[in-house]
């Protein structure tokens, strides 16, 4: 039961992050494990990923907030 609640909460957090375009470190880690692990090296830390994500998303003016 608690397992289920925890799972639902995590799903909720994930969804909120996607809806508002926030960085999702776990999604990045999962992606890295699957696609980049074989290249060697280490994944970014949570702090590094945060900075990287924000600069990618906002730095070039990519976020359009509508009227």
């Amino acid at each position: 039961m608690t397992e289920r609640i925890r799972y639902t909460l995590r799903r909720l957090q994930k969804n909120i992050k996607t809806i508002f375009g926030m960085p999702d470190y776990e999604r990045y880690l999962a992606h890295w494990e699957q696609h980049h692990k074989h290249e060697g090296g280490r994944p970014m830390t949570e702090a590094e990923y945060y900075r990287y994500y924000l600069s990618q998303r906002y730095e070039k003016g990519g976020v359009t907030r509508c009227c």
Binding site: N15, T18, I19, T64, R65, C66
Partner: peptide, 19 residues
């Protein structure tokens, strides 16, 4: 894993509406 992520359609709906 960053911009291009297959996402549940209701979550995309929320994302689009919020934008």
């Amino acid at each position: 894993g960053k911009d291009f992520v297959p996402t549940n359609k209701w979550v995309v709906y929320g994302h689009h509406f919020a934008a």
